[in-house]
């Protein structure tokens, strides 16, 4: 169990409050297995994307290309699948092609990550511009290869990734937890993860300590790319299709999830546990409000309000700290 600092306690408090209020407001529909199962299926894609955003933010950067990376990975896999596998023939879900498609998706995601890392670490382009550029590039590429059409009809093996259950637990949730543990291990138990935080706070000092900032940055965006790719596969499975422009509204929600989860936008601080907590809060709120029949746009506005509230709290908290 990770240590509980005041920030996490506050998050747990918010979560408890949200659960309580939503249960009181709609006891019949909110407190059902179905609701929570629904959340468990929806959470993972946003969770994976948020982790991709988080690693970049830890270094003081940002990755605007996560969604387009997810899409281009999914499209790569979908192109292979649509060429070789016929979803209408159950036996055609040949494991070999499935594997090939997934490997292609991972390779594409890794390549995009390395490309971003090269732009930022070697060419010295500010992360926001580098990833904005690669976002446009990938969006364009996705449109070019798909001509704007949907590639749909996935074999059963792919559909299972986003929709199946293992021992009653939604498979995508398992996937999310596995990736969360992986990221946590990367950040806490590898030298690269260790230097990520230090470099995020002061890249000059790490350079003067013989740390290769370039290597750390490239690794960071590689990880970010891989997590985006994983999100792409889950999205492809849940939508049973791949298309340029899927999930673009997620981009800003991932930033919100990170900010709420205690990942400092100036870099150097934050952990996976905080992010997971904030993701659960966001999911509970959005599912709950949806059940209450509240417009998804009001929810969107609420995200903005929450984000401002969190930042204001941090502002007043840090000011209080300075005075006392």
């Amino acid at each position: 169990m990770p240590e509980l600092n005041s920030e996490k306690k506050a998050l747990l408090g918010i979560l408890a409050g949200a659960l309580l209020i939503l249960s009181l407001l709609s006891p019949d529909s909110f407190l059902t297995v179905g609701t929570f199962q629904g959340m468990a299926f929806q959470l993972p894609e946003l969770g994976l994307l948020s982790m991709a955003m988080m690693v970049a933010m830890l270094t003081g950067g940002i990755n605007l290309s996560i969604i387009s990376t997810a899409n281009i990975s999914a499209i790569s896999a979908a192109l292979i699948l649509s060429r070789f596998v016929n979803p209408d023939v159950p036996a055609s879900g040949d494991a070999g092609y499935l594997f090939l498609a997934l490997v292609a998706a991972v390779l594409v995601a890794a390549f995009v990550g390395l490309f971003n890392g090269f732009l930022i670490a070697i060419l010295d382009i500010p992360p926001i511009l580098a990833t904005l550029g690669s976002m446009k590039l990938l969006q364009g590429l996705a449109f070019i290869v798909t001509k704007g059409y949907v590639i749909s009809g996935m074999p059963a093996g792919i559909v299972y990734i986003g929709n199946g259950s293992l021992a009653g637990i939604p498979f995508p949730l398992i996937l999310l937890l596995v990736f969360a543990v992986l990221l946590s291990i990367y950040l806490k138990h590898t030298p690269a993860g260790f230097t990520t935080f230090l470099m995020g706070s002061n890249p000059i000092a790490t350079r003067f300590s013989g740390v290769s900032n370039e290597k750390t940055i490239i690794l960071t965006y590689l990880v970010s790319g891989l997590f985006s790719g994983a999100a792409g596969i889950v999205m492809m499975s849940r939508f049973n299709s791949a298309k340029a422009g899927y999930g673009e509204s997620y981009l800003l929600v991932t930033v919100l999830a990170c900010v709420l989860g205690g990942i400092k936008s100036e870099g150097g601080f934050g952990d996976v546990a905080g992010l997971m907590l904030s993701l659960v809060i966001l999911q509970v709120l959005s599912s709950g409000l949806n059940l209450l029949g509240i417009s998804s746009f009001l929810t969107l506005a609420l995200w903005g309000a929450i984000m401002i509230a969190v930042m204001l709290m941090q502002f007043f908290f840090s000011r209080k700290q300075r005075i006392v």
Binding site: L252, V255, L256, F297, L298, L300, A301, G304, M307, I308
Partner: peptide
């Protein structure tokens, strides 16, 4: 980013 969501969300709502 926050105000963008707030402004746009409120308008459409």
């Amino acid at each position: 980013i926050a105000t963008m969501n707030a402004y746009y969300g409120l308008l459409i709502f």
